[in-house]
Design a protein around this nucleic acid. Sequence first.
DNA 1: AGGGGTTAGGAAAGGGGCTTTATAAAGTCA
DNA 2: TGACTTTATAAAGCCCCTTTCCTAACCCCT
Lengths: 414, 414
Amino acid sequence: MKRTSRDIRTANRYEVLRQIIAASPTSRQELAAATGLSLATVATLVGELLDLQMITEVGFEDSAGGRPRGLVAVNASGGALIGVDIAETYVHVELFDLGLNVLARAEEDVRPGESLPEQVVSHVAAVVGSVVAQAGIEGARVLGVGVSVPGQVDRASGVSEYAPNWDWHDVPLLDLLTEHIAYPLYLDNPLRASAVAELWFGAARGRGDAVVVNLGTGVGAGLVLGGGLHRGVSNSAGEWGHTTIVLDGRLCRCGKHGCVEAYVGASGIMLNLRESSPDSALLHPEDQTATIAALAEGLRRRDPVALEVVRDTVRYLGAGIADLVNLFNPEVVVLSSWVAAALGEPLVTEVREAVARHALPRPMAATEIVLSPIPTDPVCLGAATFALEGALQSVGQKNGKRTTPTRSRAHHAR
Amino acid sequence: MKRTSRDIRTANRYEVLRQIIAASPTSRQELAAATGLSLATVATLVGELLDLQMITEVGFEDSAGGRPRGLVAVNASGGALIGVDIAETYVHVELFDLGLNVLARAEEDVRPGESLPEQVVSHVAAVVGSVVAQAGIEGARVLGVGVSVPGQVDRASGVSEYAPNWDWHDVPLLDLLTEHIAYPLYLDNPLRASAVAELWFGAARGRGDAVVVNLGTGVGAGLVLGGGLHRGVSNSAGEWGHTTIVLDGRLCRCGKHGCVEAYVGASGIMLNLRESSPDSALLHPEDQTATIAALAEGLRRRDPVALEVVRDTVRYLGAGIADLVNLFNPEVVVLSSWVAAALGEPLVTEVREAVARHALPRPMAATEIVLSPIPTDPVCLGAATFALEGALQSVGQKNGKRTTPTRSRAHHAR
DNA sequence: AGGGGTTAGGAAAGGGGCTTTATAAAGTCA
DNA sequence: TGACTTTATAAAGCCCCTTTCCTAACCCCT
């Protein structure tokens, strides 16, 4: 709420690093042009990042007749970030270098009976240890671990206030994890993780207002407003999945009726399929992944049943997304998570048409609807991004221990 | 999108003035405590406002044994602000002093045949002239005129992009008004006007995230996010009225089906009444105001038909507001506009219960639902507030002509 | 009446941030 | 080699906020 000039600095630091990651290698000139900052400011920010060893000088580029431009690039080996995606049935973790390339990944299943906090925490500790070993990274280089857990999260205290899938209430998850993991930890939920991934590396980059729609087993939205994540007063903004789309409609697993999720979540889609074609071979009872995959495959060969199911689903999805367009008036709506990835462009095409039917023409004309361009698991990437943000945030702090900005990098050792 | 330290200054200036208006007279100490700013900063901001003659020193207050606190208060006669509310059937205008007290008001009806832009503009010019004359204000003291017009508005260029009620398309309203009105003009729509009124003077004051729900002939929401108005990429965020609440439901005047407005807008409520009790004496066909007034009166005497209609309406309204709570996770939801004002607390009580049934428990627990505490027309007040913001914005500008901050106020002339 | 004690408010200094301007560095081209 | 161009850093300036110090103004007590 209260803004200070430090926030400006932090935002600019983010912006510069984002740009470097996106267009590595790049010159200070290009960064200044892309960010709108002055050359001097870019130079000092680049200096900071060089000191942090997050980026390195990698050579020179000819200029038009004058001194050549120095190039900087991400120092991939300057550190590692870990993203943990805790979901209902698995714990997935990826270890990234600073270019946000995946160096290692690991996964463990969480069986239905193993959902006590202590059990989940030991899974997490195991997979985190595994990726660190796998990547052959020394622990000191791990800048942080971002952890995504479904439901409502108090990121400041690190408490999982409510996780619907396991009926957790006020589990002090961060404290439990701290006992097993020595790296700095950052906790949030998958909606915000994938939103932040889009903001840094995906379709929301450089956009002021964006909505990231997650279509998976659960559905929800991550809100990027004014260039940053909107969290709401208790960090639970974006709960679009349990928004009412059909009053007194289909029963949702949340206990209410007519929620968006009941129609467009993975099990909602399965139900749409079952209702329209109960005997379809596309249906794999008890297996969401297989059913969605079969549906995707059916779309590719233009199977009429698959087309029908998608059209049916998009009736709801289109109306739901149109609501988001009307309310937020975003520049872009990004479709993310595994169902969206599986169904791909055919889905997006249908969604665009359906949203256009429901949304007001003016806001609709101002917003693009696209598939997430992020090739890996956006939740892991986003969780890792929380760790990256955390590492960058503490740069300017008093306890930074870097009292004299040493700036000792060899200058122009050509 | 790009923030600078000036934005911080502007925000602080707003905050200090808001506080002074709210708690006039007040001391610098109190202001510092209320805003979280240092005493020094408050002192310089107060100095600026004194120089602008927006506030004056009005005396002293005993301190606990030490030097007495100087008190400042709004300088009511330091200027005047005008708010214009252009609606479907009328143009309403109010002239405020700097304490935002109404000094004069005027109204003209817009008859159905008179909805050409030129005709509306001449109405506006007439009422603006009328209030200035009525208040006996010299023109130089009018700091600005805020104009609210329904629909989509480009506030930068001053174009009414689309006004649904009159089927206006890209009307250069500000240019037309400039020909008749010499004061600085500010254009926006009623949703944002009433939101800004709540932000400055109403239930959203001091809140980071708030949703102002307008219940009138049309319905919509004004979004206060991060302490400021959220506009969206094309200044049309908050179009909640045409959000789908019942897929394939009742036909809305926008041409689509199942919009919130079709159920909870004034004519939606009339339809609810007609459907449940076609012969009710409460129903005044063709007269929304009378019907809503009759309904309100019915509520007061606990008329079962009225109760039934409200309960019916709240079924939809509760679900719609619950969607807003889930999506935005606001600190407060403010019910505003004339239908909300007419139905009053009985409506709010019902709404609270209904929202609680539909919204997720955690976000719901964090948000209050209240009636707008603003006693006058919030749209006029909000429009005037746009003018106030405009007047404050240009303080720090280079062309401010106040090169040497004169600070010539007589100090301590007791 | 004249000192302490206490509180308010202003002025100055300081720190963080960004930009503009000057200067140094490193090339190109004639 | 010298003039020109372009880049990068350093210096200076401005804005904004805070902290610190000092004076102003009042109380109370002697």
